[in-house]
């Protein structure tokens, strides 16, 4: 039960060997085309400042991978507010409309049944089902749109995952990734920027 060195921030030169031991064998087709430059942070204040600086430097294809949501980081990165609530509202209205239509159409048009002289349709007895279907469709829409559309999941293969340092982003490290597909990207400029901002273990990850 002794404590592992895992709890220390990444400083390893053995990142590459660890990666190949953990994952499959290095891909024979691997080229030396750059994929991204990565750097690690452990302090939430420093990484927020870094996000602001990278955004100010004009990069757009960069991201910061964190083990938990760091408040204000998305603003520092220059992200717009998420449009998810509009989808949720749409889902809620769809559920509400369905509930009204279902109860009204089945009760009054398709098969009207007189039960105890109660009205065939009324918003009052229809209220519970209307509420429940509104909530149900809103929740399902929110989850599906958030994961599927906005986060673009599921993603079964992620090229960054071959980097051992990157894999620790869901454990204890804030990993800043500047991707090669960014128009401003050059290996030197991205590396220099991350080093200047105080990132540790700044590294180039190839395709």
């Amino acid at each position: 039960m002794e404590e592992q060195t895992l709890t220390q921030p990444v400083k390893s030169e053995s990142a590459e060997t660890e990666a190949s031991a953990h994952m499959e064998q290095p891909d024979a087709r691997a080229t030396s085309d750059p994929l991204a430059v990565m750097g690690d942070f452990v302090d939430p204040n420093e990484v927020t400042d870094a996000a602001r600086a990278i955004h100010a430097a004009g990069y757009t294809d960069f991201d910061i991978y964190t083990p938990y949501p760091v408040h204000g980081l998305e603003k520092a990165m220059g992200m717009k507010k998420t449009i998810l609530p509009f989808f949720s509202l749409g889902g809620a209205l769809f559920g509400l409309g369905n509930a009204i239509f279902l109860q009204w159409w089945t009760g009054t048009l398709h098969y009207p049944l007189n039960i105890g002289g109660k009205p065939f349709f009324s918003p009052w007895f229809g209220m519970p089902v209307m509420f429940e279907l509104t909530v149900l469709l809103c929740a399902l829409t929110t989850a599906v749109v958030m994961f599927g559309l906005l986060c673009k999941l599921p993603q079964w293969h992620n090229p960054f995952q071959k980097d051992a340092g990157f894999r620790r982003a869901v454990d204890d490290t804030f990993v800043v990734v500047i991707e090669a597909k960014d128009q401003r990207f050059t290996v030197d400029s991205a590396t220099n920027l991350l080093e200047k901002l105080g990132a540790s273990n700044v590294r180039l990850v190839n395709v």
């Binding site: 986060c151 293969h157 992620n158 982003a169 869901v170």
Partner: peptide, 9 residues
């Protein structure tokens, strides 16, 4: 395939 991306968070 969750990665902890801030753009996802």
């Amino acid at each position: 395939g969750w990665t902890g991306s801030t753009r996802n968070w």
